[in-house]
Each structure stands twice: as structure tokens, then as C-alpha cells.
Amino acid sequence: MIPLSWYLIAAAALFCIGLFGVLSRKNAVSILMSVELMLNAVNINLVAFWHYHTQLQGTSQIAPQVFVAMVFIVAAAEVAVGLALIISAYRRRETPVVDEMTLLKG
């Protein structure tokens, strides 16, 4: 009996919090955590829509479930590689601070 809008607004808020984290945190691990927040926000949306459409159609909808599963998989892969990168970069440059990694400087 909860309006769909509540979930959507909560998810949007969580997404924006995550976005802020990605843009402003110095530590690479922190950025990864913020990305996780954004992914979770997306998942909330997907599951809410799954519920809504299941309710409209009467049978469980497969596609949203598959998408949620995909987000889980991608998140897991991303964290694994991301953390490996951070550790590798940390080992070489002695810092996990993204601010100090300025190889792209022109």
C-alpha cells in the first residue's frame, strides 16, 4: 500500500547522494563505495517497477529481475577490478587519493 512515488523519490535521493560522493570524495575506495550507492538506487527503481508491473500484468515479470541480477553481477565485477586497481596503484604511488593521481594532466 505504499505509493510507487515514494520508492522512486527515495531512489533518486540515494542516487544523488552517491553522485555527490563520486564527485567530491578524495579517496578512491570512497568513490567506489559511492558508486555502489548509485547502483543500489538503480536497483531499488528496478525492483519497484518489477512490483508495479507484476501487479498490473498479474504474473511475475522476468525482465526486471534479469536486470537486477545483471546489476549485481556488474557491481561485483566492478568492485573486484576496482579494488585490485586501487591496491595496485597504492603500491606504486603510495596513495589511494585520486586527487594525487594526475597522470592525465595536460
Binding site: 510507487l4 512490483h51 508495479y52 501487479q55
Partner: peptide, 8 residues
């Protein structure tokens, strides 16, 4: 947007 999520 204002649709209600009923119990399934």
C-alpha cells in the same frame, strides 16, 4: 507516478 503498490 502516484500509482499504489498493492500487496501481491
Amino acid at each position: 507516478f502516484q500509482g499504489m503498490l498493492n500487496e501481491l
